[in-house]
């Protein structure tokens, strides 16, 4: 009897382990697949000609994606400039100021914001943000600025939820210690709570960046997709993700491999960001 239930327990354990490891397997497969398809072109053309090349004319043998790397980083930082202060403010409000009822209303609203499909964000961008930028600031409206605004909103849920967790995990005793010395609420927040939650807040920014740099659909709808490095915030641009999504449908031969190389670069950037968020910052917390 005992033995039977033991084997049953073991069975469940093994099934769960298998499923858990399968997600690891998918990650491995994605890596292998992208590298397998993307690396040959690096070997053929040369790493520097791809990541430092300015000209993208894949049918004519030019695979330079430097402008797209720059553009991807520009929209990501643009998104951060807009999303970080808003997101952090919202997280501070939620964890320090809002009452229970407000929290019950705001948290689900934020989850909904995270669940809105990116094509809807792109749609809103095209209908409202692009004309607004065109009419008031000039240019075509399909621009770095419009893209940054939309991405800034899209990364809010990431920034808010991770910053919120970081702020709420600051021990109550720190706050009490500060209040007991006659600090005001805001002094306590910005001198004790925020510095104590610093690493979690930074991690939220970096994960938000990862989300922004990987976003595709909304970006191709509003970025304008021009193949050059933007010189003003009103210029159009094309990101790494946009490049793949726009051209994959008709690309063949080396052109197709070029898109996979773009994917490899994107993957490496995201890996670096995740590494910073997970290890660089969490290790500091443990200290």
């Amino acid at each position: 009897m005992i033995k039977k239930s033991f084997t049953k327990e073991n069975f469940v354990k093994w099934v769960l382990t298998a499923f858990a490891l399968s997600s690891l397997l998918f990650l491995f497969l994605i890596f292998a697949f992208i590298l397998f398809e993307g690396l040959p072109l690096f070997l053929k053309i040369g790493l520097s000609k791809i990541i430092a090349g300015f000209k993208w004319a894949p049918t004519k043998g030019s695979f330079g994606i430097f402008p797209m790397i720059v553009s991807s980083f520009l929209v990501t930082f643009g998104a951060l400039i807009i999303g970080a202060p808003m997101g952090l403010s919202c997280a501070i409000y939620l964890s320090e100021y809002s009452g229970k009822r407000m929290k019950m209303f705001l948290k689900p609203a934020l989850e909904l914001l995270a669940g809105i499909p990116s094509v809807v964000y792109g749609f809103l961008g095209v209908i409202y943000i692009v004309p607004l930028v065109r009419n008031y600031l000039g240019g075509s409206g399909f621009s770095l600025l419009s893209t940054s605004i939309i991405l800034g909103v899209m990364i809010l849920p990431t920034i808010i939820s991770i910053s919120f967790d970081a702020l709420t995990s600051v021990p109550r005793t720190y706050r009490e210690g500060s209040f007991a010395m006659g600090a005001t609420k805001w002094q306590t927040i910005y001198r004790v709570v925020i510095p104590s939650a610093k690493s979690g807040i930074l991690a939220s920014f970096i994960l938000g960046m990862g989300r922004a740099i990987g976003e595709t659909m909304a970006v191709i709808m509003i970025a304008g997709n021009a193949l050059r490095i933007p010189v003003s915030i009103l210029d159009p641009l094309r990101t790494l993700t946009g490049n793949i999504a726009l051209e994959l449908a008709y690309a063949t031969g080396d052109h197709r491999l070029g898109l996979f190389s773009t994917g490899v670069v994107l993957l490496v950037i995201i890996m670096i960001l995740n590494y910073i968020a997970n290890f660089g910052i969490k290790r500091k917390v443990i200290k």
Binding site: T173, E176, G177, M181, G182, P195
Partner: peptide, 29 residues
């Protein structure tokens, strides 16, 4: 009031800063 009537807690609760930063916290505030 809280400046005149200070409090020490059950569990020591220094802030996660340096010793010096902890000590000048009240003066800064």
């Amino acid at each position: 009031l809280r400046k005149r009537v200070g409090m020490v807690f059950q569990r020591p609760n220094p802030f996660p800063f340096s010793v010096y930063e902890n000590l000048i916290y009240g003066l800064k505030v």
